[in-house]
Design a protein around this nucleic acid. Structure first.
Length: 359
DNA sequence: AATTCGTGGGC
DNA sequence: TGCCCAAGAAT
């Protein structure tokens, strides 16, 4: 399998791929900059996230934080608000941690060695190679899902790409194949090919610029690759989400700094065994806040699917009187709430409130 | 090595 | 509807 690398006319393969990339590449915002900091941002946002989704976020982000220094100085809540809706929120906090490290240790210049950039928070093997090749023109491998799919077909590699150790096989393949004249176009070309032509289902082989190099195509086996075992099923959790009102204010709660939706804000959330009614909500919250939560009313019910779990949420509205609230909660008015970073489930709750005229 | 981390789109 | 997926990293 790795032996397949030597069966490729490397120079011809590089030329075919790179020529195609320069001709057919999409005009993406992060391809209009040479700033390593901005390229870094794009690579973080693109992790497990579609190009079309990232584009508007990237534009707003670089406008809000044009330089590495701007992001280093930013308030985390403002940062998370910019990231709201993009998902995987630890990416944003890790990015800022990495940026601050660059500001302190490297005088604000993104380091240009794999060892140094790999040590930055949120930067793994893929992102390190991507920034080094795209921003600095270095012949470093950048193996993502696209690259594994494309090369599994071209080189007829049938190892399970869901297994962590398999990535190394592809890193070695890229190291052997990468163009030293244009590493950036080579790496981006592999990914662009995966996105536009060598797609997971229905690969457009007749449009492929490197099909004559492709072992899978030559054997008619492109649909068999890549080999990828499937993930586990996700579990469900039941919650009561409660918008507690006092005058013109609503009670909001900041989530813990680790784990799911870290540091994001939400309406107070009760984990429940089964669906509980409004009386149950009043009882549990009154006890929790050592006050009175009354006039609870269910206003919505929805499901929110995460990667590995599902929230089944019953949404309530209620009134709070003389509540003792903990450190991680605060009363906010409508304008203040708009500044808080919130996740998908809270967004759904907010929509239910708004359509009802209660927020 | 296996889990944990979001979201929206496609079929 | 349910499942898979999309420029992965941290634990």
């Amino acid at each position: 399998m790795e032996g397949s690398v030597i069966n490729i006319d490397k120079k011809q393969f590089q030329n075919d791929l790179i020529d195609w990339f320069h001709t057919e590449k999409r005009d993406l915002p992060w391809r209009r900059t040479a700033d390593p900091y901005q390229i870094w941002i794009s690579e973080i946002m693109l992790q497990q996230t579609r190009v079309d989704t990232v584009i508007p976020y990237y534009k707003r982000f670089v406008e809000k934080f044009p330089t590495l220094h701007d992001l280093a100085m930013a308030d985390e809540e403002v940062l998370l608000k910019q990231w709201e809706g993009l998902g995987y929120y630890s990416r944003a906090r890790n990015l800022q941690a990495g940026v601050r490290e660059v500001a302190e240790k490297y005088g604000g210049k993104v380091p240009g060695s794999r060892k140094e950039i790999l040590a930055l928070k949120g930067v793994g093997p893929y992102t390190a190679g991507a920034v080094l090749s795209i921003a600095y023109g270095l012949p470093e491998h950048a193996v993502d899902g696209n690259v594994m799919r494309v090369l599994s077909r071209i080189l007829l590699i049938d190892e399970d790409i869901a297994k962590p150790k398999t990535r190394k096989v592809f890193e070695e393949a890229v190291t052997a194949l990468i163009s030293h004249e244009d590493p950036s176009a080579f790496n981006q070309g592999l990914m662009e090919l995966g996105a536009l032509v060598c797609t997971p289902t229905s690969p457009k082989c007749l449009l492929c610029p490197v099909r004559e190099h492709c072992a899978a195509f030559n054997e008619g086996r492109q649909h068999e690759l890549p080999v990828k075992t499937k993930a586990k099923t996700n579990k469900g959790v039941n919650y009561a989400m409660v918008a507690i009102r006092s005058g013109e204010s609503l009670l909001m709660e900041k989530r813990p700094s680790t784990g799911l939706l870290a540091n994001m804000w939400q309406f107070p959330l009760l984990e429940i065994a089964e669906s509980i009614g409004a009386p149950g909500v009043e009882e549990r919250l009154s006890e929790q806040f050592k006050g009175t939560v009354e006039k609870a009313e269910k206003i919505t019910s929805f499901k929110h699917v995460f990667s590995h779990l599902t929230w089944n949420v019953d949404g309530f509205i209620a009134k709070g009187v003389n509540l003792e609230i903990p450190e991680n909660m605060k009363w906010v008015n409508a304008a203040e709430m708009d500044l808080l970073p919130i996740s998908g489930p809270v967004q759904k709750m907010k929509t239910a409130l708004t359509s009802r005229g209660d927020a």
